[in-house]
Amino acid sequence: MKFGVVVFPGSNCDEDMVYVLKNILGQQVVKLWHKDHNLQGVDMIVLPGGFSYGDYLRSGAIAKFSPIMNEVTEFAKKGGYVLGVCNGFQILCEAQLLPGTLIHNTSHRFICKNQFIVADNNVSPINASIPLDRVLNIPIAHGEGCYYADVETIKEIEDNAQVLFRYCNPEGHITEDANPNGSVNNIAGVTNIHRNVFGMMPHPERAADEELGNTDGRLIFESLLNHMMANV
């Protein structure tokens, strides 16, 4: 598979993502600059974490106007796979490729720590291979990670099984105390209705190398790859 990792001014997790996709998972990877129009024939686009355009106005609000986002939008409309992590998730919501938005953490503090999450279902490529009773320990690092949507939208994504992951405690229980940022219903990630665009606040690329003592994030990438390769 060929992955394209988009680099915006202010991206700072692009090298982490490239390293995991290329060195850990053995995939072909190219970097796509935010002004590019050529997607170089990639099979999947990844929008990494960071602080695109300094998070001015609000996270992702300026990045959605980058030239490459026109290509990302068309790619997604044609069924292409797109993953946004942290700032990438924020950008996808701002570009309306995913429902809802990300607002300031209820604590009004930047949070950087390991966080437990659990797959909500197995109906999307990104969580299809993850046992529902498997608790994943994935780092988070954000100041605007509180997932929010109006009541109607929340009901719609819940009914359509568009929630990918939820924040939980070490035992896998979804509780208020296990919610690090105040996200509605402990939502840590969502997909679009067609299940080809994915967004999540936790950083799976930071938990994919054995040298770090945690490879839970690799399960998320492997779930995606298993689905993609099965449908080549």
Results as ranks from 00 to 15, higher is better:
215 T>V: 14
46 V>N: 02
173 H>I: 10
5 V>A: 07
157 I>Q: 00
158 E>L: 07
121 N>Y: 03
158 E>H: 01
146 C>I: 00
225 L>K: 11
132 L>H: 05
68 I>T: 02
1 M>I: 12
222 E>P: 11
16 D>K: 06
77 K>Q: 13
161 A>G: 06
199 G>M: 05
114 N>H: 14
112 C>Q: 05
75 F>G: 05
132 L>K: 15
228 M>N: 06
206 R>S: 06
205 E>R: 06
181 N>C: 02
133 D>F: 04
114 N>A: 12
9 P>M: 08
99 P>L: 09
179 N>P: 05
110 F>V: 08
201 M>H: 06
212 L>Q: 13
214 N>T: 02
130 I>Q: 06
47 L>F: 05
150 D>I: 11
151 V>F: 11
191 T>L: 05
89 F>G: 00
90 Q>V: 07
226 N>I: 11
50 G>H: 01
78 K>I: 02
139 P>S: 08
37 H>L: 14
28 Q>P: 03
141 A>F: 07
69 M>C: 04
115 Q>D: 03
218 R>W: 01
232 V>I: 12
91 I>F: 03
50 G>D: 01
32 L>N: 01
22 K>M: 09
179 N>W: 01
157 I>P: 04
40 Q>D: 13
39 L>N: 04
199 G>E: 02
111 I>G: 02
34 H>R: 03
144 E>P: 05
124 S>F: 05
41 G>E: 08
198 F>W: 06
129 S>C: 13
223 S>N: 06
178 A>M: 02
211 E>S: 15
228 M>V: 07
117 I>Q: 02
156 E>C: 11
135 V>L: 07
230 A>M: 10
198 F>Q: 01
125 P>C: 08
16 D>Q: 01
33 W>T: 10
84 G>T: 07
59 S>T: 09
151 V>C: 14
170 P>N: 13
136 L>Q: 11
137 N>H: 11
17 M>W: 00
50 G>Y: 00
17 M>E: 14
69 M>E: 08
212 L>A: 11
155 K>P: 08
173 H>S: 13
96 Q>F: 08
30 V>R: 10
27 Q>M: 11
223 S>H: 00
220 I>G: 10
214 N>Y: 02
46 V>A: 12
59 S>R: 00
212 L>S: 10
64 K>Q: 14
114 N>M: 15
